[in-house]
Design a protein around this nucleic acid. Sequence first.
DNA 1: TATGGATCCATA
DNA 2: TATGGATCCATA
Lengths: 239, 239
Amino acid sequence: MKWLRTLILFERGGVLESPDWGDLHQSYLRAIAKIDNPRGSGRLKLREKVRQPNGQWSRNGVNYLKARFLEHMKGDEGWLPEGLVQLKSEAISPELRLYPSMMPHREPVTSTFGGFDFVTSGTQGAKVAIEWETGNISSSHRSMNKLAIALQLGIIQVGVLIVPSRSLYQHLTDRVGNISELSGYLNMWAGMATGIERGLLAVTVVEHDDLTVDEAFPYLTVGMDGRAEQGRKKGRLAE
Amino acid sequence: MKWLRTLILFERGGVLESPDWGDLHQSYLRAIAKIDNPRGSGRLKLREKVRQPNGQWSRNGVNYLKARFLEHMKGDEGWLPEGLVQLKSEAISPELRLYPSMMPHREPVTSTFGGFDFVTSGTQGAKVAIEWETGNISSSHRSMNKLAIALQLGIIQVGVLIVPSRSLYQHLTDRVGNISELSGYLNMWAGMATGIERGLLAVTVVEHDDLTVDEAFPYLTVGMDGRAEQGRKKGRLAE
DNA sequence: TATGGATCCATA
DNA sequence: TATGGATCCATA
């Protein structure tokens, strides 16, 4: 798989020059580079999306890519995924006002923050959280918001979102995260550095190496998640 | 439908005391109150979720609720939904840095912001955007982020998200937006008031009036969106 | 084609 | 039960 670029949204306290970050970045770039298809080929080759006779698109599922990334990070790169950074709802219950009573109101925080895809410690101890984002694009917003909050609370010092390029996006499950649809919001997240003593927020963009229109080349498996059955049924009807 | 509370995340420049806001709030509270089921009953009664023999849950679809809200806002309340606030990608292309080159980088903004569910002008001219959030909870994050950016850019002066209570949430399509799962993030959005001269960001929580376990009482229609077919097929298999 | 959405799944 | 996710839909 091809790494395209890493965007630094903000950085405070020298994390950018630290081995914590430098080593981690090199490491996860290797883990990305090793994601290949067919397995062992050394390159990530994907069949292009194709419109079927019934008007539906055939595309690649996303589970394989994520599984390979985590496999490489834990195996080859030797990172130990530590306990989830359980963002306890500490100090995040906001003091608001109710309308129209104008009464002060503290909305109870009744949900916990779930974990990140990958949480570990850098070579010098910085806490790191990485999100591999191939869920829905709206899920990328939650991921970025969560990373920003974890940085603000000092629970992590490095937060990374890995996201498909717009070009890759087109050949994966419809509406997955992609850098294009995040681009208009980057400025907002970049503005969340205020008050952070030590922290770095980055977005890394990835892409396939090759595309093919070879009809004999299988798509990456599509899971049963989401509305899969809906599409499968249509496919069967068209058979 | 029952209004539970309206939370003011932030307010600047006196919007809170303006008729723009006061009139709008009264108006959309009326529009919410009129959402009923069965139609004409004056109360929103929903059948409780039920676990089927195959382990799956039966729940209410969400399209009806949103349609009724918009119907009341446009019809009874007389609001004219104006052209979408097309958040043009102005001044939001962030100045970032690339790593490891450290080169300055301006990520091109290659996606436009889509519209809001409802956009109009207040009685004194304030621009208003309302989001009725019954999409996936992650979609609520995008909605809130978008409202915050529109307020920061001065394109709107009032931004409102209407979202189900946790109690209502349980009886609707799995994983729709709900106040509980947003609660840990409210503080973040409340902090985005910086630099805004005139603007208000609010979250309004709504709920059903009544629940029933009557098996003869129909669920609100479930659409073909998402993974609907998947569930339907399971249902058929169990028949 | 592009964006917001609705739906059900997987797993701790 | 709760949270993050994967999938396909509707519509301008």
